[in-house]
Design a protein around this nucleic acid. Structure first.
Lengths: 284, 284
DNA sequence: TGTGACATAAAAGTCATACTTTTTGTTCGC
DNA sequence: GCGAACAAAAAGTATGACTTTTATGTCACA
């Protein structure tokens, strides 16, 4: 899918990045450039460039006389869209999807609020249009068409917020939405409630009602989180765990392992009240 | 400061990255590798590796027969810590600082809420300790010492949230706090109210009170935003602008300029009940 | 037996050069 | 005036030689 024929560099980068993020080379593993050059049948030049990029993503560290070392997960540049794509394609897509969705639940409501203050008329129009598109495609297994509108909608909101950092999360959100659609971490037809909420958000933004826009978007995010809970329940009882709670501490040299947590919030009684406590702005 | 002598690659990367993010080469500019090699007095090999890294940050795009083109600002990987550092060192530190602070105001409250659910006893202890450290250093011009505790505090919160994406924002927050301290976008002594709030957050987390932890953290973020408003008021009337609203459209080839907004939220009346709406960041 | 200086070698880092491929602008023929 | 062939420019790739750093093993000395 990602592995096209556009340049050796890209091919190798993709292969290596994917392998590393997939845990194929666990943290601490050492790679040698010459080996890699041989394995991928490319020149050292290409491998070096790839390594440099991987290094800039903090996936590996290169040191003389020792080689290219895979860094521990918690140092990776997990905001790099490329890394996100690799990880979503790999084994721990579920956890990744959850992490990102939690991030969305924090950011998008605030972004929507700002959007209500800042959106241009044109953006308001676009928002309404996409919301209506979502309504139109929300029935009859048109998930692909729906996805397009959904992505566009959230992108407009993030852009309209006027905050550069929010705007740049558009790609991340797109990856998340695409990921959950294509991997069936989503109901067969979109949740009607969610569709309605999107329409209402467009409305609120148009009316410059920041509080409402924020609150409604929070509802959307909450819904997504709940859906994830239902369709991809996490084995780990903890709500949102760091990846260091693996049963086996991995064979690699684990010198400075992070503090291992023992705590685990019981917090799953009944029907999971909601994304739970940290979200005071309940529907008033 | 950043330009150490550790490797040619790093030196050139730093210089080029800094120059680009500073707008020295405006979007659309074309660089040729041979030129760069000559200018920096290094081999093409080194330049190519640097270009590859810059490319992975979406700062430039390299195409055959045309050269290395600087990409428009809105495509940069603004979450890359390296890019953040460059931009904070450059000319538009104020805007950058604001963008990041708004991001914090969205993320940290939610992170604090999750932290209240997930923090280990050890993390609770660390949190209290850092909060007390802040209290101890909050008077008598000990800004540097205060900064250390402040950074540590927020880092613990983000880590304790158990969400990987939040945790990785620790570095970003550190950059923001450091930036505002070192560049005097901050009062001479920390706001006593903020100090108290930190202590209370530690308390709330210890008591597993997620709602309170979230709300208190929101207050902290709001305070930071207000402080920024007072000490680095934005010339632009809009609350949180994208960088495309510059008065002069820049000399470079600006083909696909984003939609220019004309809107500007009036909305500065009264005492602002709380963060209430999405960040009216009033100067109060 | 332990310790420190020193030699060795392994691997990345750097450089120069030659060659390939893609792309763009131009020219030439119709 | 239009399209196709052509030429040149710049990145992409490959290779080989050389430099620098540094982990590690060795050996002398205490």
């Amino acid at each position: 899918m990602t592995t096209q024929a556009r340049g050796l560099h890209t091919r190798v980068l993709d292969a290596l990045g994917l392998a590393i993020t997939a845990g194929e080379y666990p943290p601490g593993s050492v790679l040698r450039t010459d080996d890699l050059a041989q394995r991928f049948e490319v020149s050292r030049t290409v491998v070096r460039e790839v390594v440099r990029v991987l290094e800039s993503m903090h996936l590996v560290a290169s040191r003389r006389r020792v080689g290219v070392t895979v860094r521990p997960t918690e140092q990776w540049n997990v905001y790099d869209p490329q890394v996100i794509r690799w990880r979503l394609a790999g084994a721990d897509r579920p956890r990744q999807l959850r992490s990102l969705t939690v991030l969305r639940s924090a950011v998008e409501p605030v972004a929507a609020g700002l959007a209500a203050l800042n959106a241009t008329p044109e953006q308001c129009r676009a928002l309404t249009e996409e919301a209506l598109g979502m309504v139109a495609t929300s029935r009859g297994r048109q998930l692909e068409a729906y996805l397009v509108h959904d992505i566009a909608f959230h992108r407009v909101v993030l852009n309209a917020s006027g905050n550069e950092m929010f705007a740049r999360l558009g790609d991340v959100v797109a990856e998340v939405l695409t990921g959950r659609t294509h991997h069936h971490v989503m109901f067969d037809d979109p949740d009607p409630a969610a569709v309605t909420l999107h329409v209402q958000v467009a409305e609120a933004v148009r009316e410059r009602d920041a509080v409402r826009a924020e609150e409604l978007t929070r509802q959307i995010a909450l819904g997504a989180l709940r859906e994830l809970d239902v369709l991809a329940p996490r084995a780990d009882p903890a709500p949102d765990r760091m990846p260091d709670s693996a049963p086996d501490p991995a064979p690699g040299p684990g010198p400075g392992a992070g503090p291992s947590r023992a705590e685990a919030p019981r917090h799953r009684a009944g029907a999971v009240p909601s994304h739970a406590a940290p979200m005071p702005h309940t529907g008033s």
